[in-house]
Amino acid sequence: MSSTGNGRPSDLWANITVGLVTAPVAAGVAFMILYSIGVIGLLAGGFTLESWVQVLADVRTWVTLGFSIWVGGASLLTSLVLALGIHTILGAAPRRRALHGLWYAPLAVPPLVAALLSVEILGNAGVLARLGHALGWIGQPLDFPSPLYTRCGAGIVVTHVALVTPFLVLLFDRLARNERVEGLTEAARTLGASATQAWLRVRLPVLMRAATPALSVYFLALAGAFEVPLLVGAQYPPMISVAIQRRFSQFDIAMRPQAYALATLYAVLSAAILFLVFAARRRRERLERGA
């Protein structure tokens, strides 16, 4: 392969790379579509949209999707506000030191462990409940207002926020360096901006502008989360990944096409969101270059 410039071998290699990643995903989606429309499968009887009609007409589908978007959005927004606040308080890391090592430690916590900790700390018989009992605030485990297993998804949101906020703090720290946010803030201050004005008119828009692609991927990851809703979510409504897993695990093979239809629906929606975000960013960049 060429080691210099833009020779065709380089392009070919890049295409192969992307093919290695997209081929399995594309094949998987194609398989799910064909299965869901009855073209292939153990009980396939030829092309039919029956599974799709059942899934789309089922109110539970839309409740699940809406609930996933709600939990993903609430988790991301809460984490965003917290992370921006923390990043602002921590301020510019001194030139000779990056962000304190402590802030990297949460990267070591997987979603399953976070969910387990939520149960043991925030659960009805968790550490906080026991502390409340010791202080005389509650009598029985059920007296403790645990956010877990609630229909509004509070337990899922709290766990996600604990997981995602440190990531966002690190993200903002890195972006602030790349975008020279401290220098820009100083420029704004000497132009007459108060600390609040500099934050609102410079730091916030510059960081959000740079972080949008990463935030959109985070949103999709949160909306499509599996482990945390599995352990701390209510039975109903389930989040989309749990709903798909439940349908897929059912003994009734006849339900399999519906499982694939639901999975395809979510795959297409999430791919579309990703595409829209990237397209919007490209359009903005093109406008800025061409203006």
Binding site: V25, G28, V29, F31, M32, G224, I240, A263, A267
Partner: peptide, 23 residues
Amino acid sequence: LFLVLHLPFAVSPVVLGVSLSYF
């Protein structure tokens, strides 16, 4: 290409697992 490379992360890991299990 970057957009396409992000696709496996955009779809839920459950969707990825479910879609690949047959193959």
